[in-house]
Amino acid sequence: MPDQALENEILRPLWKVHILHHAQQGPIVGHWMIEELREHGYRVSPGTLYPLLARMEKLGWLACCNPSRKKAAKEACPYRLTAAGRRALREVEARLKELTGEIRTKARS
């Protein structure tokens, strides 16, 4: 299990990449995303994830598939990836590819 500093400073921001990736594959809901992130070893709670989804929606990366469902607090709001979210994911993928290539090159030398 990673220490708290590693979790907070490096791993938690990667949640957003996972969310964008899965939203690209199809609509996601918070509860399912919590379970998916936990399967990858991330420690995530609803109190952390739902505000994150709301921020990603405010940034224009996600959109609620049925905005009228958001009004009812108990109903799940399926989120889909927007065009801006696709652009953000492509940018992250390119930078991660560059970074992992650099890490691999350094490891071989």
Rank of each mutant, 00 (worst) to 15 (best):
41 G>E: 10
86 R>F: 05
107 A>Q: 14
7 E>A: 14
63 A>K: 01
40 H>Q: 10
61 W>R: 00
89 L>M: 00
9 E>D: 10
30 G>W: 00
12 R>Y: 09
92 V>D: 03
98 E>Q: 04
63 A>T: 02
55 R>H: 08
107 A>N: 07
68 S>A: 13
76 A>T: 08
27 P>Y: 13
39 E>V: 06
76 A>C: 06
52 L>K: 07
14 L>M: 06
90 R>T: 15
67 P>F: 15
6 L>I: 10
72 A>D: 11
83 A>H: 07
43 R>D: 05
75 E>R: 15
103 I>F: 02
38 R>D: 05
36 E>R: 14
100 T>F: 14
52 L>D: 07
94 A>E: 11
45 S>M: 05
17 V>K: 02
49 L>T: 09
13 P>M: 04
104 R>C: 04
9 E>N: 10
104 R>D: 05
87 R>D: 13
108 R>I: 05
93 E>G: 00
101 G>F: 01
78 P>S: 13
50 Y>I: 06
72 A>P: 01
65 C>I: 11
34 I>M: 09
53 L>A: 03
81 L>M: 09
105 T>I: 01
11 L>W: 10
67 P>W: 13
106 K>W: 04
76 A>W: 11
73 A>R: 12
16 K>G: 01
2 P>W: 15
42 Y>V: 12
15 W>E: 05
58 K>D: 01
99 L>F: 07
54 A>Y: 01
76 A>P: 04
62 L>P: 06
82 T>A: 04
7 E>W: 04
86 R>I: 07
18 H>F: 07
108 R>A: 14
96 L>V: 04
27 P>W: 12
45 S>F: 06
30 G>V: 00
36 E>C: 09
3 D>S: 08
46 P>R: 15
16 K>S: 02
106 K>H: 01
